[in-house]
Design a protein around this nucleic acid. Sequence first.
RNA 1: GGCCUUAUGGUCAAGCGGUUAAGACGACGCCCUCUCACGGCGUAAACCCGGGUUCGAGUCCCGGUAAGGUCACCA
Length: 546
Amino acid sequence: MDLNKLANALIPDESIRPLEYYEARYPERTLEKGAHVTRLAPSPTGFMHLGNLYVALANERIAHQSGGVFYLRIEDTDEKRKVEGAVEVIHASLKYFGVRFDEGADLCGEYGPYYQRQRAEIYHAYAKELIKKGLAYPCFCTEEDLEKTREHQTENKLLPGYYGEFAKCRNLTEEEIYANLAAGRPYVIRLRSQGNVDVKHTFHDEVKGDITITENNQDVVILKSDGIPTYHFAHAVDDHFMRTTLVIRGEEWLSSLPIHIELFKVLGFRLPKYGHNCSIQKMDDETRRKLSKRKDPEASLSFYREQGYHPTAVRTYMMTLLNSNFEEWMLKFPDKDLEEFKYSIGKMGKSGALFDILKLNDISKTQMAKLSEEEAYDFLKAWANEFGTAAQKAYFADKAYMLKVLALCMGVGGKKRRKDFICAKQAVETIGYFFDETFAPAYAYRFDNALVKKILLSFKNAYAYADDSAAWFDKVKAVAGEYGFATDMKAYKADPAAFFGNVSDVAEMLRIATTGLANTPDLWTIMQILGEERTLARLEKAAAAL
RNA sequence: GGCCUUAUGGUCAAGCGGUUAAGACGACGCCCUCUCACGGCGUAAACCCGGGUUCGAGUCCCGGUAAGGUCACCA
């Protein structure tokens, strides 16, 4: 059979250039020894998964830490899954979380194009080459044909797939092929696998360690009937010509690794190193499963933006899952930037971790506590502008006022910071009582209303804005004493029955009256921030409500 | 079902043949304290099961079991 003629008939792409051209066009990168070229290669589905960030971080850290290159490639070979504007989503969400690419789609770079659809010429050139060498062939099987063999294979407990005797088009005669072509039958190009499933090799995976893999014997399709490559083929061609040295990807790819190994071999490309990382899981009743895009809102990167999680917190949490010794380092050097951490691919977990929002919340609290009130202002304002209610947006109009609120709630100036804020949404909600528009108290006192009313009024009469914290508290105590509440905690503890309650109960009444809440930061300061007029008004309003 | 991978407290996990089996989150208790938050101290809580190898096994080997992944003209 004239393979050259066949190749031309099968792939009549005029733009193809000699193979040497591509090697010269995409030369080996000149990098320091030990530098890694890594990539993130998402599909433009418009949905960014937490797992995308997870794997992006691992690749990014390794590339940048080694003085290498980290780039973005868009795997848009599946027309059905493509979504308009998806690439913007990819860029925006990763940028928000501080993942920076050196080159790639919509960025500069010498190894592009970085959209697979724009690289058809290269795939065609190499698919054609394989045909010429007899290592690939056209397959005219229909979906029904394939379905039938699959049924037969499952019934007879045979290895499913297109291989050996089941590869019906593998040994089509020249006449048959041209007859099919003349009949206008659609076809795909399949690899003529040289592998044998009975042969096993041990393969060194950068994260899993030594694993045993079986040779591929599947005649996988490399070019779909529309001439677009499948993932496997595009992966081999792209990672070769983009000169990727290390591929860190999800473990769902591990089982197709034999295909990739064969493809690289058959194409004459040097195999990159691989690291297959585990996916983040979630407990679903009694069983674990992958974080699901459909079932779990926290699977989506947009969730963290909507909730207003600080990007550094999410990154930090990802890092704790990514490198087992990261958390210890972080505790030891709380003020160091996480880029100073020496990331090690060998320290990546071998089994999938359960997503733990409580842990994320804890990390988020300490992250928020690291912010100055100015930084917090900017962060919360940006969140409110995008996701907040109209009233919440208005909070930020009076910056000086907001800064005072934040300084109090974050414990700025104190020995240790408070950790009241988890994420922007929750933070903005918790400071709602500082703003009359959203101050909607549900007064819930633990004492008799008539008594509370008397105490409120009594304190209101005594209150003076100019009092300092100590003088203010003396007045609280005075009121407490007046109504039979203990002002001395020791005395109270010694004989609780002798009193209505103690000074903290009185403070609670005042707190509920002015903020609507039983738990808040320092009440004196809150009154200082609210101002004399509003403080008095709130006390009066609360008393009137009783 | 075949193949691959994994298995230490509720969760994330140290551990690489000899340890009282770290630490963090969470839970609980105490202290500090006008509440809360912070902080401090403390308690409970683990080597999947069965065989080997070895003076000695969480650690090495084999076999179970369980969990995860995968078996597309999707990535």
